[in-house]
Simulated scan of single mutants.
Amino acid sequence: MSKPVLCALELNDEALDEKVLAQAARLAALDGAQLDVVNVLPDFGESWVSGFFEEHHHEKAVKDTTQRLTGLCAKVLGDERNAKVRHLVATGTAYQEILKVAETTGCGLIVIGAHKPDLKDYLLGPNAARVIRHSDCSVFVVR
């Protein structure tokens, strides 16, 4: 068995997320690798923005996001395969947290989607580009 495959999903474009997840699952299956799926929530932390949210907003957001990840994995992969997937929710800056999770899990491959970029981003979105630039492992980009 090889190193885990980390699949980073944004959960805001279901069609792209399904493509990214299906590709990550295929790549993990080729090597008999563990499939980890991650989504990163923004961190409002101690900033003035946090004052606009309920006290337990973050915990609720993590719970809801975990349910969305689990549901998407069950839909795309089926219940049996989904039971073996590690569903991870991180909080912070997307590319930084994806890289931290990749390092923590010791993954050998990150699979990430490339959304329709702005002209300033040209080929890749800013998070995908940063993950590619700073990752210690291979990165597979799904369009």
Rank of each mutant, 00 (worst) to 15 (best):
F44T: 07
L88E: 08
G71Y: 07
A28I: 00
E14V: 04
V89R: 11
V85W: 07
L77Y: 08
V20W: 05
G71S: 08
C73E: 03
F52L: 15
R81P: 09
T70S: 14
N39Y: 06
R26E: 13
Q23K: 13
E18P: 00
Q67D: 13
L16P: 00
G51E: 12
D17N: 10
V85Y: 00
G78Q: 08
L16V: 07
A33S: 15
K84W: 11
V49M: 14
R86A: 14
D17I: 02
Q23F: 04
L41K: 08
K60Y: 10
H56P: 02
D31Y: 09
T70F: 01
N39H: 15
V76T: 11
A61W: 03
G51H: 00
K19T: 01
Q67R: 13
A15Y: 07
A61N: 14
V49W: 10
F52H: 12
Q67I: 12
L30G: 14
A28M: 06
Q34L: 11
L69T: 02
R26L: 14
A25Q: 06
S47P: 04
N82M: 13
V62G: 03
E18L: 09
T70R: 04
R86D: 12
A22Q: 08
L27N: 03
G51M: 07
L16C: 00
E18K: 14
L72F: 09
H58E: 14
D36I: 09
R81W: 00
T70P: 10
A83Q: 13
T70L: 12
V89D: 00
L41R: 11
K19I: 00
N39M: 05
K60C: 05
A83G: 09
V62H: 05
G51L: 02
T65V: 03
E59P: 06
H56A: 14
D31E: 15
K75L: 06
L30H: 13
A28R: 00
R81V: 15
D17M: 01
F52A: 13
E80D: 15
A28P: 01
L72R: 02
D36E: 15
A25I: 05
Q34E: 15
V40W: 10
D17G: 01
A83K: 13
R86P: 00
V76L: 11
L27T: 01
G51N: 10
D79P: 05
E46S: 10
S47W: 01
E54W: 03
V38F: 05
S47A: 12
H57I: 06
T65F: 02
N39L: 05
E55W: 02
L27C: 03
V62F: 04
